[in-house]
Structures are given as C-alpha cells and as structure tokens.
Computed example of a mutant assay.
Amino acid sequence: MARTAPNTNIIGSDSLQAVFLRRATSELERIAATASPKVLDALSAPTDAGSLARHLSQSDVIGSAVIELDPLVPALARNVEHRKILIERAGGTLSAENAGRLLGISRQAVDKRRRAGSLLAVRQGSDWHYPACQFDETDMVAGIADVVRAYTSAGSWMALDFLLAPDSVLGGRTPLEALRAGEADSVLRILRSEAVDGFA
C-alpha cells in the first residue's frame, strides 16, 4: 500500500504534532491493510473517534506485536470508548460558562463548586466539562453533590458511571433516575453498602 505523507505545510515537520501524525498514520495504514473488510465494518461507529477507539480496543486488529510492546493499548482504547458512551448517555456536557448561566452564577462560582465537590465535572483534554444530566431546568438534581463527594478518590468518571448504571437495588433504574424521583436516601444506601470513600 502506498503511503501518503502527512501534510506538514500547516504543522512544522519537526513539531510534536507532525511526529504524532506520522506515527498515527503509519499505525492506521497497517490496521487498514491487515484487518478484513468484515472486521472494519463491524467496528465502525458514528464518529471518527469512536471508530478509532473500537478498532484499537481489539487485540486481533492491532496485532500481537503491538500488544507485546504496549499491552495497555486495548484497555486504554476501551476506556476512551466507554467515556464517549457515558457522555452520550449523560446528554452531553456543558462548559463552565453554560453551566453558570443555567445556575445563575458566574464561571468562577462554577469552578469553586467543582473544586468543593458539589458539581460533577469531567476533564476532557485540558478543560472541565459538566455532564448535562446533573441539571434540571434551573438547578442541580438533589443528591448529585453526595455522589460526587463519595467518589472523590475514585474520580469523576467513576461518579458519572455510577450515576448512569442501572442497579437491581433500584428496580433496574439508574441512581440518577432515583435522584430525580426524590429517592436520595436509596442512592446513599447503595453508596454505603459499596463502602465508597466517606460512605463506608
């Protein structure tokens, strides 16, 4: 397969971006050349990032040589895909400015609440983003701050995963659905039973 050199007119040929682009292009060309059309089609996703994450999460697609050199590649890719799914299930995210507008507070106040553990924020790239599911029309869903604080050590992605995962104790509903129904006590009981951080 002929290789297409990355366009370095915009990105300097010695820059980190150009090096990354060359390495990523080389690996993608190798995957495209060796994976069957059936596998490539089965792993397609609605977005470029989703397709890439799905392909990199399959050890048979990326190859045993890569796994030997970098055994965490499939797990990292699955984590990227899982986070993407969580954000979709959360209804997307809001910027600090938009979260502030919804709550009627400043961006600085939003940041202060995030640092205090009373707002759920996940880091995407270099910025904090606020999952939309924690808000109703004008305020936060009651009980979210308790969940965020319970997952201080585990991290905000784990808190979001907890909120959006159906639980048999809640009759198959998610903790978020229970919070929206005014059942914060039921959610707190689950946190205590799982001995999460301060709820042991």
Rank of each mutant, 00 (worst) to 15 (best):
A49R: 14
M140W: 01
A159G: 14
P71I: 00
V80C: 07
L43G: 02
P6W: 08
L176F: 05
A24H: 13
L103P: 10
I62H: 01
L164P: 15
S95N: 14
E27G: 01
A53F: 03
V61R: 00
I67N: 01
G172V: 13
A90F: 03
P74V: 00
L76F: 11
D127H: 15
L21S: 13
C133G: 00
A96H: 12
A75L: 13
R113W: 14
G125I: 08
N98P: 08
L103H: 10
L69H: 04
P37E: 04
R107P: 13
L69Y: 01
A116D: 15
A53C: 02
L163P: 04
E27D: 04
K38S: 11
A99D: 04
I11V: 13
G198T: 09
A18L: 02
R89I: 02
G104V: 03
L72F: 09
P37L: 03
P46A: 12
Q58C: 05
S44A: 08
G172Q: 14
V141D: 08
Q108T: 03
P131V: 01
A195C: 06
E88H: 05
A32K: 14
Q58A: 01
D14F: 09
L16S: 06
E81R: 08
S57R: 04
E68G: 00
A2S: 13
F199T: 01
V66L: 00
